[in-house]
Simulated scan of single mutants.
Amino acid sequence: MQITLQELQVFTTVVDTASITSAAERLEQTVSGVSRALGRLEQKLQTTLLRRTTRRLELTEEGQAFLKYARDILTSVEEAEEQMAARKKYPSGLLRIDAATPVMLHVITPLIDTYRARYPQVELELQSNEGITDLIEKRTDVAFRVGSLADSTLHARLIGTSRIRILASPDYLKRHGTPRNVEQLAEHTLLGFTKPEHLNQWPLHERSGDLLQIKPAITSSSGETLRHLALSGAGIVCLSDFMTQRDRQARRLVPLFPEHTLEIKQPIHAVYYRNTALSSRITSFINHITGALGERPFDEH
């Protein structure tokens, strides 16, 4: 039968991109070349792996079953290559990283240049998703997540914590005044998250003693969008220090209720499925991020 790794790579990439054209672009091959490789694979297996329609590609039942074997084979080859690189104590190969946009922009990307200078043989693929990513489905090696973790199947490593604060721009406060107590917040434009709802609990006590649950006038699924709204003077926001450190230092955003704000810190974890002993790339990247963050805490003003 003699199925090749190139044919397996073509098949999984077509599935991941849901398009022969997109797969060809990712693999830097021609569309006809990808189509022929897919055809050869189906001919060797004597089965149809993908149904082709004018609108989309759809896995057949046989294709769904074969996909797992194809991914396992490619992963085994990658791990074998990593083991050889690990023998030289020099990580190499492709590392797929996922993080929400604020984490990617404020935590990960500022440290990419120094990581690449140290490990030039590692290729990086950066993906931003506001929701929770299925690491296996998206073929992600390591993801960075803020807040408590619900998925017990993941290995996790704490890389840092980040305090949340209530902030507003000087321009907003000049136009609308500075609230002096929790009750006065109801008179202001509050910026909050679409979901999950617990992100709209601010680190202040209500009269009942519970955390303040706000009713935002403007919501977004992205903390980065909320940050830009606050910077533009659109309202008052509650964000994590890792996003706003430079804004606070430059006084583009100023803390409100500093004496009454509870010290609530969000954990930031690196999560992964693989054992780091099998991937020097994952180990090296997490160590690099953790070491750098230890040298410059988020809550420094």
Rank of each mutant, 00 (worst) to 15 (best):
L199P: 07
V34G: 02
P196Q: 06
L135T: 07
R251K: 15
G233W: 01
R157F: 10
I282C: 08
L149F: 05
V142E: 05
P255Q: 06
K68N: 02
A156H: 08
Q121V: 00
E25P: 00
S22F: 03
H188P: 02
M84E: 15
N275D: 15
L5W: 01
T4M: 01
T21G: 00
Q83D: 09
A217G: 15
L239G: 05
L67W: 01
I268E: 03
A277I: 11
P170F: 10
R96T: 12
E187L: 12
I20Q: 14
V15S: 02
G235P: 06
L94N: 13
L253D: 02
I264Q: 13
T225K: 12
D72S: 14
Q245A: 08
V34F: 03
V34Y: 03
L262N: 11
R36M: 13
L57R: 09
T276E: 15
M1S: 14
V103T: 15
Q6S: 14
S221I: 11
R157V: 14
E81H: 13
L126Y: 04
I108N: 04
I108G: 06
T133R: 11
R180L: 09
Q83E: 12
R145Y: 07
L185Y: 04
R175I: 06
M84F: 06
P196V: 04
S279A: 03
H301V: 08
P91K: 12
L173F: 07
K195L: 11
D247Q: 10
N275I: 07
A168I: 05
H198V: 09
Y172T: 01
L124H: 06
R96D: 00
